[in-house]
Design a protein around this nucleic acid. Structure first.
Lengths: 189, 189
DNA sequence: CTTGAATGAGACATCAATGTCTCACATGGG
DNA sequence: CCCATGTGAGACATTGATGTCTCATTCAAG
């Protein structure tokens, strides 16, 4: 009969996105299975989180690939990337905050690869003159994650409209990254 | 002898900023007192977090007042605000993620006041023509929090230099909020 | 129908954090 | 000096989540 592992994972993701402290019991109920079965699939909360992390990484890499970060203007690539990531923002936000808890442990290398790909996109934009160069790619990457998580939470709590998700993030991020067109308006107090 | 309550609070804030799951025992040790004494000061972990929340709110309100959000260009007010908030970004980041856990409970009204003050600043900037109007003040407020938390974590993990903190946030945020000076460069792909 | 594998329900032990309590110590004021 | 208050150390029970196990049931294949 083999419980639908993917279904369990997605249910868990949906639940933990809303309540990151949910019990294994709650996770099981959310997936419509018993705690025993859940435990047969994932040997513990830790294993479950690891599996969710792997899922998040896979979805991020898929989104990254679908966004074709190397094609066309970096500006458009960023737009595509955010649009591709949007459906998984909830899970990503959960994993993002979860990562803050893993104090000493080294993070999954998958994230490292993703970090580098995203940073590379920003670096490409800087090299092409589309993006300003006074903000480091590392910070821009970090900021993108922060904005994604913020937006996911804000949507979850009803503070902003879901349909604006991509637009809000892209416009705020790009507006900050895109080189200003009017040098005369620079900061002069 | 009266244990220095403020010292305990700041030690706890510093510790929880790094390890948000720290035990009451660890919090006590970090403050250089025993768990018993810690418990005499704060009737439990919950009470401690509430006290930290109150501290964070107080510091936020102080920063908000010091930034004089109603004076001069909104752009400069935002700069002042971020600069004032910077020293407390760690604590704020902790409280920010902590708030994601409080599912049903209503949030402290202090945050509501602060939210409104910040949103009001963005609204003022929009009214004066300094800020673009296609991003809602609520989202901009949320985004500011997200960037503050991201920056605090990135600094804590050594991914970005502490000295760049204010500059990174302000430049990214303002660049996105400030009206583009060159309309011809709008998104036309 | 029979059989075997997977599941659901629940009992049980474990473990970590917490809340509570007692008691000895020391420190400062009278 | 004596006392009172605050503190440190530690024992103890409680609680909530978890890991483990058993057993009855169900469902599909043969």
């Amino acid at each position: 009969m083999a419980v639908d592992r993917d279904h369990v994972l997605r249910s868990a993701a949906a639940l933990l996105t809303r309540k990151s402290t949910a019990t294994m019991d709650e996770v099981a109920k959310a997936a419509g299975i018993s705690r025993a079965t859940l435990h047969r699939q994932f040997a513990g909360r830790d294993a479950l989180v690891r599996a969710l992390e792997a899922l998040g990484i896979a979805e991020c890499e898929a989104a990254l690939e679908a966004a074709r970060p190397g094609e066309g203007p970096a500006t458009d690539a960023v737009r595509r990337l955010v649009a591709e990531v949007e459906p998984h923002a909830g899970l990503l936000a959960f994993l993002y905050s979860e990562n803050q808890l893993f104090e000493g442990e080294e993070q999954n290398e998958g994230w490292t690869r993703i970090d580098e790909a995203v940073a590379g996109l920003f670096r490409r934009g800087q090299a092409s003159g589309e993006f300003r160069i006074d903000l480091t790619p590392a910070w821009l990457t970090e900021a993108l994650y922060g904005l994604l998580a913020s937006a996911a939470w804000a949507v979850a709590e009803g503070r902003v409209a879901p349909k604006d998700f991509t637009h809000m993030i892209v416009e705020l991020l790009l507006g900050g990254v895109r080189r200003q067109g009017d040098p005369a308006r620079r900061k002069d107090s």
